[in-house]
Amino acid sequence: MRYEAPATAKAAAKLLLGAKGSAKILAGGTDLLVQLRSGMKPPGLVVDIKHIAAMSGIKKERGGFRIGAAVPSAVMGENKGLGKAWPGVVEATGLIGSTQIQGRATMAGNLCNASPAADSVPALAAAGAVARIAGPGKRRDIPAEKIATGPGKTSLKKGELVESIFLPKRPPRSGDAYLRFIPRTEMDIAAASAGVNLTLDRKGVCTAARVALGAVGPRVILSAKAAKALIGTRLEDSALEGFAAACSAAATPIDDKRGTKEFKTHVAGVLARRAAVIAYERAGGKP
């Protein structure tokens, strides 16, 4: 296993492209080292991206935020502006693992690990986040939810890596929230999760919504039907009931050690509903 710590994204892409056997990107390492430990065949090359300046900071850009792929969750949590604009995304990323994990784990890593239960992904999908991909050719931007294509699989080609994630400028009266269900209070993988991102008009009526469900399908589920159940409403009880039902209907979970299909389906609706109420309040809506 060769270890390289290049200084630029270009150099990283070149290393990845030139790798003979398998190559892995090391950001926070909180997934990679666990996989190595659990008997994964060691990759021929590990590319540490933490020495790449362009990937190591949070920048304001066009009224939004560009978050480098090597930025650990803890640093995101300490950025006040980011937390104010996108509390749901910051909270989602802040839920990944313990304080110790937070010191290392990155949002981009969470995205590229492509776990169906990744905490930051539903929040990113709901936020309409855009991943910037560096590679041998030109940089390209794709919606965050298009990165993972299935458990452990991504749409990235050989030599490509996520360089940053962009969270766009928010219209006024917008709010987002993310909730997950775990059996404990911490240190668990979501059995079901939901990210909700809303914009309201002056009267508190929802004019735009994005709703994403996690851990209830092979990849994040962005549900237009669920979003539609919120648009045009003030999130009255009846609207929320329809919304929760739409979320449960959109969920396609499996039975596993983290819960039964029935349980996850039900809880996806419960959490989405609760997240919607938080997002609504954050957008300035009065419940």
């Binding site: 270890y3 090391l26 080292l33 666990v34 110790q100």
Partner: peptide
């Protein structure tokens, strides 16, 4: 050995981390 118990906690450049989830070479 998987970052779940915290018994290996150390500070790395002033940040709390699990040393089982850091490669030795990263300490350079």
């Amino acid at each position: 050995g998987t970052g779940d118990c915290g018994a290996c906690s150390v500070m790395l450049d002033g940040r709390l981390v699990c040393s089982c989830l850091v490669l030795g070479v990263e300490a350079q």
